[in-house]
Lab assay of single mutants.
Amino acid sequence: MKVIFLKDVKGKGKKGEIKNVADGYANNFLFKQGLAIEATPANLKALE
């Protein structure tokens, strides 16, 4: 799953980066902790 990092995550990505991560990692950790959002077309456009 492609995500946009909202904060730096050690060993995974930095704020503003768009990366592929495992679905479970994104859903169970990144999204719940507010560290990333899904890289949907709307979210990508808002990032610009």
Rank of each mutant, 00 (worst) to 15 (best):
K10P: 15
A42L: 07
L44G: 05
L44N: 04
E17C: 08
F5H: 01
K15V: 10
I37H: 04
Y25E: 09
A42Q: 12
I18D: 00
E38Q: 10
F29N: 08
L35D: 02
K19A: 12
G34V: 03
I4H: 01
G24T: 14
I37W: 05
E48M: 13
N27C: 14
L30C: 04
D8W: 06
A26P: 02
K32I: 13
I37N: 01
K2P: 06
K14W: 08
K32V: 14
G13S: 05
I4C: 06
F29Q: 07
E17I: 02
L44T: 06
I4V: 10
L6A: 01
G13K: 00
K2C: 15
A42K: 11
N43V: 08
D8F: 06
P41Y: 09
A39G: 03
N43F: 08
K14D: 05
G11Q: 04
G16H: 08
K45W: 07
K15L: 07
L44W: 03
G11L: 04
E17L: 02
L35W: 09
K32W: 09
I37D: 02
G13H: 10
N28H: 10
V21W: 02
V9L: 06
Q33W: 15
A26Y: 11
K7A: 12
E17H: 04
D23A: 15
K19D: 03
P41T: 11
E48F: 12
I4S: 01
K14N: 10
N20I: 15
L44H: 04
D23K: 15
K15F: 06
T40Q: 04
K2M: 15
A42Y: 08
G11A: 04
V9I: 09
A42M: 07
K19S: 08
K14C: 14
K10G: 08
Y25W: 09
D8N: 09
D8V: 02
K45P: 06
F29I: 14
L35A: 05
A26C: 08
K7F: 12
K2L: 14
K19L: 10
G16N: 07
K10A: 13
L30P: 04
N27P: 07
I4L: 08
V9N: 00
F29W: 11
D23W: 15
V3M: 01
L30S: 00
G24C: 13
V9F: 04
K19H: 11
F29G: 05
F29M: 07
M1P: 04
P41C: 12
T40S: 10
F5E: 03
E38D: 04
G16P: 01
